[in-house]
Design a protein around this nucleic acid. Sequence first.
DNA 1: GTTCACCTTCCTAACGGTCGTTAGTCTACT
DNA 2: AGTAGACTAACGACCGTTAGGAAGGTGAAC
Lengths: 192, 192
Amino acid sequence: MKKEILQIALVQFANEGYEGASLGKIAEAVGIKKPSIYAHYAGKDELFLSALTYALERERSHLGCYFKQMKEEPLENLLRGYFNWFIQDLEGNDHMKFILRTMYFPPARLENEIGELINPLFDSMHRHFTRVMRERERRENILYSDDFSSCALAFITVIEGTITELVYSGEAAYLKRYEAVWPIFWRGLVRA
Amino acid sequence: MKKEILQIALVQFANEGYEGASLGKIAEAVGIKKPSIYAHYAGKDELFLSALTYALERERSHLGCYFKQMKEEPLENLLRGYFNWFIQDLEGNDHMKFILRTMYFPPARLENEIGELINPLFDSMHRHFTRVMRERERRENILYSDDFSSCALAFITVIEGTITELVYSGEAAYLKRYEAVWPIFWRGLVRA
DNA sequence: GTTCACCTTCCTAACGGTCGTTAGTCTACT
DNA sequence: AGTAGACTAACGACCGTTAGGAAGGTGAAC
């Protein structure tokens, strides 16, 4: 039951925001009364931060899973495949929406705690891609630049530009952006 | 006074969101009492949509201004300069934050009206950049692809990936992303 | 095996506070 | 005289939260 509350709250927070989501509506969606939530969570803040921690942890393991799965793939497949990785699991869409919404527009009062939760994920993402660039470069020797950190940051930038479109317009527009930006990005990344 | 209310409301909506911003706090920031707002706006919804219309109109003229100013510049300068164009005027930061927040995470009840307001701006942005790509290509003959629409979409994707970082982390991180992504994007866009 | 205390988890009722909104009034300028 | 724009007062609705109690399960003591 505790987990059901969390998962439903996560969806509500993703679509309505911290202020817009209400414990009453969450409870109703779960099928219980509002005060019953307090048997599991100390209050709205704790529920929110628990949902965020859960979504981040799931995303982190998701990420590690992907890198493990693509360990032997060439760089091009690894980067390109990452675009499809998101739209694979459907409920991950709500998770990503929740994370993006919370990191871009956090409720002011929880800004510090949220930053301490979210920043590590994006740091680790950056480190992962930096390492991958360096390792693959040693194997494949194709990159134009040897500033792997910048290359990784550029990739993350492109990823975020397309993901926001996934949140905004849905999968079709997302794929259109991917098809537009990927060939250009890849051409710019590797040697002529 | 009507305009003062609107501008202060815009900042509040940008930083707190539709649900998070309250008419009481807006009135206080303006220096009047809450019900006085109703002498100028029919309610919270109208104030919100007025602020959005204002921000969009200002952004649209801002955009037109930029293209006029860069009419004779080569494509590289025109695209590259666009990254600096945002951080030029400081209050534009709140405008952009407001627009992005509203387009990505609109209050559910106003979603349709908001879409009808925002979509034209991004359509016009896409058309502008598509036209610029085509015109400059005729002059400079440097682009790798002749799918100008896709090139424009790719550029907008990169822009959005960096702008979201401007909203999230501020100017320093924004510039870092720009410096990472621009050389790669430009190399991928033009012929070797 | 029964009893009893305890804990969990749900409930109803209600609190204080804030929200957006309306009614009605006063003031000042046209 | 009339209108625009500010005010005070107050409305009902909803918010997060707390108090207090009922139902059910668990586990130790007898």
